[in-house]
Design a protein around this nucleic acid. Sequence first.
DNA 1: AAGAGTCCGGGACAGTTGACCTGATGCCTG
DNA 2: CAGGCATCAGGTCAACTGTCCCGGACTCTT
Lengths: 196, 196
Amino acid sequence: MARMPSAERRRQLTEAAIRAMARDGVAKTTTRSIAAEAGVSLSVFHYCFDSKQALVEAVITTLTDHSVSVVQEALRPKDTLEETVAAGFRAYWDHVRANPEAHMLTYELTQYALREPGFDHLARRQYEVYGEAYAELIEQLRRDMDLELRVPVSVLARYLAAMTDGLTLNYLVLGDAAAWSDILDTVTAHIAGLVR
Amino acid sequence: MARMPSAERRRQLTEAAIRAMARDGVAKTTTRSIAAEAGVSLSVFHYCFDSKQALVEAVITTLTDHSVSVVQEALRPKDTLEETVAAGFRAYWDHVRANPEAHMLTYELTQYALREPGFDHLARRQYEVYGEAYAELIEQLRRDMDLELRVPVSVLARYLAAMTDGLTLNYLVLGDAAAWSDILDTVTAHIAGLVR
DNA sequence: AAGAGTCCGGGACAGTTGACCTGATGCCTG
DNA sequence: CAGGCATCAGGTCAACTGTCCCGGACTCTT
């Protein structure tokens, strides 16, 4: 086994844990399966992390940061507002369709964090970060395009966050991705109508 | 311990399991904790259910049926469409605020079912039932009020289902119930605009 | 009242899991 | 080149969980 500093080893174990959890589910992922996925022995695990909880914490923060960048990548300003929103939804939706297990994992980890004493702040931070990312993007769009909103930015941001959350979860459960594009179109039109 | 027929004992154990799971979470609920919650010995559990999975199946179907009745109770026809939708949202939202653990449990069970081999159909059925309940209510409203929809009933039903799902999850994570009423108002107005 | 069918209690067992420990192996510094 | 430190491998342990067995008690029929 190649030697490496603990910081890098920690990253490797975190990535392995994400893969294992996305594949098997959070409940069925053990320290042994994570170590095996990373290709290291179990003792290495406890050398790099004080406990399994410490690793889960690293997994959640890593995944949260990663998800935000996905949202920010998706929402790039276009010529018109409707075009911007539509393109953003499309990019996000493509990501969901391409990585269903990863999105499923975030839902699982949210609930794990809410149940685990002392971890609830991680779940909240995850959702707050989403909302803030949306709010910043809306604010930026509003300035760039000189828009006037019929509703406060915070309301619109939370609406978008909850909307995408619900649509994603429904798709993950029911499948049938095509059926949801009509709904995204409806929502896109709705949002376009909320500005003047 | 009072003697009772297995059918009734099964119901009692199912109810106890729902309470225990809502309180401790699905992952931390064991056959022992369920038996203790029901006030019976562990052997009674396996006398009434072949396995823990058999009980979880009973829990999911029970809870799904229960949730549908909540939605149907909430959406009673009023004088105007907007009033009907607003009252429906308010009733549903009150139920969520009054029973956060119960709603959290449904999300947990959905993911449990999706991960457990042979249980995914239960998760799908849960979400299909929601969608169908919405679709029927919309159809009924459309007939009674002689409405004309700008979007197909199925699209509107799925939109509502995903919307409430996402809003509920966001509230369960972030709290701050008051902040979401503005969003519900926005959605209500949106839906009212989708008919003519 | 007697027997069969139904229900209940305590205990036990095998498998799994997170955590830990001791010793060995390489890498770097002085 | 030698000592010290970071890194790894395997084994062990205690706790927990789902499942099962066996004996006893209750109830209803005949």
